[in-house]
Design a protein around this nucleic acid. Structure first.
Lengths: 338, 338
DNA sequence: CTGTTAGCGCATTCAC
DNA sequence: GTGAATGCGCTAACAG
């Protein structure tokens, strides 16, 4: 059985208070002798403080919660790694919650994390979240007085601490690249259209089109779900559009396209060009290494955690926002069209 | 501020006990009227039980710890998903710990998890673990009376609960396939050679070779580290061996090979055949979809969690072992050699 | 039917 | 220098 303060008090003959004092290295005038006796006993009995009890009285758990929509997507597992590394540096733990893109899970997990008394939450909302859903989540956390920073997906109206990427520019770069390669008929496969970041990418897409004097055609837009399956599902549609290029709103979607293209004997980039979004580390080893928009995911995880921990230390709500600029990575999935 | 039992007791005029009784739906003869009053107050004040306090007295946290060596490897993130899904089904939480393949982190995390009072640990040991390291980890958990099941990597001498795969057969299938394709000079890029599963795969490799009357040549064995970097590092060596085929001990290693092959204008499978191991979901969309040995990772995560939770329920140490059979998935990275 | 009492393991204030 | 008392928020015997 695990040794408690009481056990080692009984063992040494000192009181629980004294033991607690020396074990926590508190400034007090306890003679070296006593200290040694207690330290030795603690060592011998293999004493480790019960963090549940410590947390209960200190009202701090040194634990952060991370909510993401899908860990099996490397985008999020890389993000989780960033969070975890900073947690470790700060003597923190991380509780990882995977919502499988269901907003309902978001709420459940928030409650669970609050109940467990985590010091703060890094919140990556589910893919099916509407603005209203997001507001619900935020309110839930605010009501319970929980510090949090939102990461990745976001709604401008939320006015909370947030780490993200300038997706308007991302969409713009992606589309502009395609245009510069000579493409005029450019389709796009979006993520869920109620998401702000999707709308931003779409804005970027339109902006680039407009600049090039190409008319926006809503028939060339397919609403996907940010995963391989929906990319694959979009393929037949894509073939019918007679487009020469497509902008997939994330890399996973592009992968779905790759799979179907291969099945159907369609060549990328010979038959059509593809630009992705995220720069997952697999993108460079694809048949045609994927041209994509890079998001600094790991750094985002790091930054969010730093902001959160800093805020917790100072006992104030995190307020900071930080928007990274995306970067176009040109590889071989796009080619000149003439 | 969060409402406590006391608050709602004060609000309703009943005692804390009574409130606790009705809120926990305990069998007791409390009149409906009182119940309603208390329930209403709880609702109104937004009461949620503080799990720290509950855990402290119940000596149960409904939380499991999962220790893995690298979440950004889809093998482990898929495993984590399996664990998480079963946790959710059982009203459990999961604390994810990522060790970056450092045994020292294993020990730290075990201590942390014990301190936090998790009910059990699913332990995927770090890649740099020796048998002695593994024993240390197990002893640490046993000393603290912690239930655990080991997953993925293992040492037979450990005699603990364990979920894994028959890697001897895996290595055998991989090599045999290559032999059946007509290859005679087959290299392999292993994982860290002190790991049991690596040695098993190697045994399988030798077994297949022997059956085919091919002499085992230690010069055709390269010790990798189970990641893309070491696969890439092995490439120049591989070219010098003049082999016609290579068995990469995991898919990530194979990916490293793909990257270098592409850089150097070497074609897979034209110039040489590759078999991987794991069947990560990216393997099928590679330039030459990877022939590989499939491990049922998700199921393994599920199984381990089920065993652990079941054991916890029955208040006994998990004992069960379960070894899955791997499966050869033939795709296009291997071709007939004549 | 409901309240009193005790205690989970620890930190902390205040006496002695 | 050290210890008794109190409380964190909750559950669980045991009375009444």
């Amino acid at each position: 059985m695990k040794a408690t303060l009481k056990d080692i008090a009984a063992d040494t003959g000192f009181s629980v208070t004294t033991v607690s004092l020396v074990l926590n290295n508190k400034p007090s005038k306890i003679p070296e002798g006593t200290k040694q006796i207690i330290l030795e006993a603690a060592q011998r009995l293999g004493y480790r403080p019960n963090q549940l009890a410590v947390s209960l009285v200190k009202k701090r758990t040194d634990t952060l919660g991370l909510i993401v929509s899908d860990v099996s997507n490397p985008f999020f597992s890389t993000l989780a790694k960033g969070v975890e590394d900073i947690c470790r540096e700060n003597g923190c733990n991380m509780i990882l919650c995977n919502t499988n893109n269901m907003h309902k899970c978001d709420l459940n997990y928030i409650n669970m994390l609050v109940d467990k008394g985590v010091d703060g939450i890094i919140y990556g909302m589910a893919g099916d979240s509407t603005l209203k859903n997001a507001i619900d989540s935020c309110n839930l956390m605010k009501e319970q007085d929980m510090s949090f920073v939102i990461i990745d997906r976001y709604f401008k109206k939320l006015h909370t601490s947030y780490i993200g990427v300038d997706h308007l520019m991302g969409g713009y770069y992606a589309t502009k690249h395609l245009i510069e390669m000579g493409h005029k008929k450019i389709a796009c496969i979006t993520g869920p259209l109620h998401l702000d970041d999707v709308l931003e990418r779409l804005k970027g897409y339109k902006k680039a089109l407009k600049e090039a004097g190409i008319k926006y055609d809503s028939k060339l837009v397919f609403e996907g779900r940010y995963n391989m399956e929906s990319g694959a599902a979009a393929f037949p549609w894509l073939m019918k559009t007679k487009c020469t290029a497509v902008f997939a709103f994330n890399d996973m979607t592009a992968y779905g396209l790759y799979i179907e293209a291969k099945k159907n004997g369609v060549s990328i980039p010979k038959d059509f060009s593809v630009v992705g979004y995220d720069d997952i580390y697999f993108s460079k080893i694809l048949e045609a290494p994927l041209t994509t928009i890079k998001q600094p995911v790991y750094e985002m995880g790091v930054k969010a955690t730093e902001i959160l921990i800093e805020a917790i230390k100072n006992k104030k709500r995190p307020e900071e926002q930080f928007v990274y600029q995306p970067e176009l990575i040109v590889r071989s999935s796009t080619r000149k069209f003439e």
